[in-house]
Structure formats: structure tokens, C-alpha cells
Design a binder for these strands. Sequence first.
DNA 1: CTGTATCCATGGCGATACTG
DNA 2: CAGTATCGCCATGGATACAG
Lengths: 225, 225
Amino acid sequence: MSTYGQFCPVAKAMELLDERWTLLVVRELLAGSTHFNELRRGNPRMSPALLAKRLRTLERAGVVRRHDDAGRPVYGLTAAGEELRPVVEALGAWGVRWIGELGEDDLDPHLLFWDVRRTVPVETWPREPTVVEFRLDDVERAVARWWLLVRGGEADLCDVDPGLEPTVVVRSGLRVLTRVWRGDTSWEHALRSGAVVIEGPATARRSLPRWIGQGDFARVPRPAA
Amino acid sequence: MSTYGQFCPVAKAMELLDERWTLLVVRELLAGSTHFNELRRGNPRMSPALLAKRLRTLERAGVVRRHDDAGRPVYGLTAAGEELRPVVEALGAWGVRWIGELGEDDLDPHLLFWDVRRTVPVETWPREPTVVEFRLDDVERAVARWWLLVRGGEADLCDVDPGLEPTVVVRSGLRVLTRVWRGDTSWEHALRSGAVVIEGPATARRSLPRWIGQGDFARVPRPAA
DNA sequence: CTGTATCCATGGCGATACTG
DNA sequence: CAGTATCGCCATGGATACAG
């Protein structure tokens, strides 16, 4: 962690927080991840060594607290860490407004559905077990099919067929689905244009946009221009 | 600018903003600096080459706009740049609350008085030209004496004797004065303890804390512990 | 005053493999 | 599952000098 040689609170904060990946680890903790491999899943391109290093730095800084739960390490935010929420929210709100273009490299089905799974409003789903199958038509076959399974108030994500008949099937391109999730476009618009197609019983088809919802920053209003 | 391979708005924002110095340049622009050397003054440890590079990156990203004013380059924030104010404010508020300890290396009289000069509430000062001399007793002589000169609604900073009789003289250590400025301690407490001493006519002595005031993040409440 | 040009050292970090 | 260990590259950025 290198220094700026400034007493300014912004500079002191950035000495810790401007290191690569640091704030994305905090974002994962704010989103509720607690175990090492959960944090890895939220940041798949981060090497485990680097994640371990960042966690220790954050712990030393008083942002993260690590404790053991029956021998298993658990990471959580301290009060100081929890107070980074406004920082992360301000960054996300700014990012969704002003960094709209996504490169091919920014698209990742695993990250998308991982985020969907943990954000999905399960309370709006039917009481009976419900399976939504996603079929991405513009990615390699190995990552083209995903299943979101909601039952008993819990959401599960599978990348292999869970063997249950899907209630609805969603056919889409990865980019479009990602843009809908970010709120760059609406479910309504994506469906009307045919970029996203939902197959299944009429009521389920109509309900699906509300079942899935959108990501945390989707409701941030966009610049007029 | 390296990438994270994530569509998350926080990640997209950080691809731009987590590069070293970037947000401190934005901070300076938010504070009103417009010329290259003003930006350097606010970040004296940044090399000019790097500042130029950051400005160009920010320009490409649509955060900074550069235009010429009678042949002289002027930098300013776009709408996107101006909207980084909440981000910088959230970072500063967090930093002043949770990164309280300042190393010796964080103390810099030039940065301190540069910040004082541009923040000072000139409207509270007397109408007649007023000079405050600062004498730092714990730094090398070359940077131990500073003069803040307010007249005609303008504040000027000198590091050499301006030749005007000072209205008040403030004697202090650099660390204490920095802590008062950041709001880590109050003027009242610093004066009562004798860590800061004000010399001059009684009315001016009593007025000085309000003349100088405190830095932008000083009023952020601190953690109870 | 507003930057460029050049050089160089460092260490950050990505990749991979491996261990308790 | 939860990390260490090791390696090596190359980009970052610090320092300095210089130019329009």
C-alpha cells in the first residue's frame, strides 16, 4: 500500500481503497458473501493469493473482521466496513450512468447469474418449486444453459440440468440479458423487440420479469442525453 | 487502464477511478483548480508526466474537458465529472472517520496552507487588509513561516514575508494545526491545551478560529469509540 | 507556464501449482 | 474448502531533464 503524503481524508481513504480489487471485495462482503470461495466467485479473475492478501490488508485496516465458525473461516465487515456502503453505492450509481458501454470482455454469464441468484426477490415467486431455464444463444455451449431454482424461499443456481421440468424458458443473448439486468434497457423493451423470448404458460411468462427483477443499480436514472 | 471483466457498475467505475492519483486529481478539480500547475500544487508528489497522462485518460473517459482560454489550457469537469462529487465526499467522510492516524509523512505545510487559502471564509474577515502569520515550531526553518493575507475579498498565501505587519501570529506545531484543520480536534481544545497559541489584539485573537475555520470534512461526526 | 521525453527500478499482480 | 508458494513479466509510475 503506497502513500500519497497527504493528510486529506480523501487521499488517506484512497491509500487503502484504490488498490486493485479492494473495493470489489468490499462490494461482495456488502452483498452478503462471507466465505473465501464466495468472494472468489464474485471476483473470478482475482487470484486466490491476491484475495488473501487484500483480506488481510482490509483486516489490518479495521474494515474486515475474520472469525472462525466451527473451524471454518468467516469474513464480515466491521462498522467501518459497513460504512463503505455509501461509497460503493455512489460509485455504482456513477458507473451505471456514465460507463454504459460494455466490452465483450465485460460479459460473463457466471457473474450475471451469480448476481441474479443472490438478488432475486424470492418472495414474489410461486410457493411451489419453480425452475427458470436460461438459454443464451451467443455464447459457447458449455456456459449457454443455466437454471434458476426457487423453492422454500431459497434460490439456487445450476449450470447443469437439475432434472426438473422448467416452468419457463428464457431465450436471450448474453449482452441483452446483461443490459436488462443493469437497467440499461427494460424487460418490456427487450421482450417487445424480441431480443428476449420467454416460453411457458401465459401467467408465468407475464410474471417472469418481476420474478427476476433487475440489479441493484438498475433504478438509477440515466443521463437525459 | 486494466479491466476487471465484470459488467458490474462498481467494477466499471473502478477501472477508471482506482488508478493511483486519479480521484485526487478529480478532487482538485472539484475544489476549483483549473490550471495544470494548480493541479500540481494540490498533488505535489505527482510527476508532471503522470498528471498529464491522468488528465488525458479522464478526458477520454468524458470526465474532464480541456479548452483553451486565450491560448492557456484550462481544465474543467464535465457533467459526468461533476457527478463524482458524491463519490469524493463519501470517500472523504469515510476517511476522516476511520483513518484518523496521520504519519509524519502525511503532514505537509504547503498542502495545509494551500487548502486553508482556498477554503477560508473571507466574508467573515475584517474589511481592512488582514495578515495572519503562522509559525510552525516543529518543522525545518525553510517551511516554518507562512502568511495568509486577506484583502478585498481575496485570500493570498505567502511563504516569504509579505512585508506587512501581521494582525495576529499563530504559533503551533504542524501536526496539531493539521488535526484542527481536519476536525480531529477543535480550535477550542487546541487553544485551551496551549498546543496552539494566538498572539495579537484580544478581538482578533478571539476571532481567528472563525476566520480560519476548518477543512471540508471537519464537521463529519466521529465514531463514538 | 505547460507540458514531453526518457530512463529505470520496483513491485504488483497474473498464472499456476500445490498443501493442510 | 481455504488458502500458500513460487515465479516472472511487464506495466506503473517515480525521477529528472528538457522543450515549445
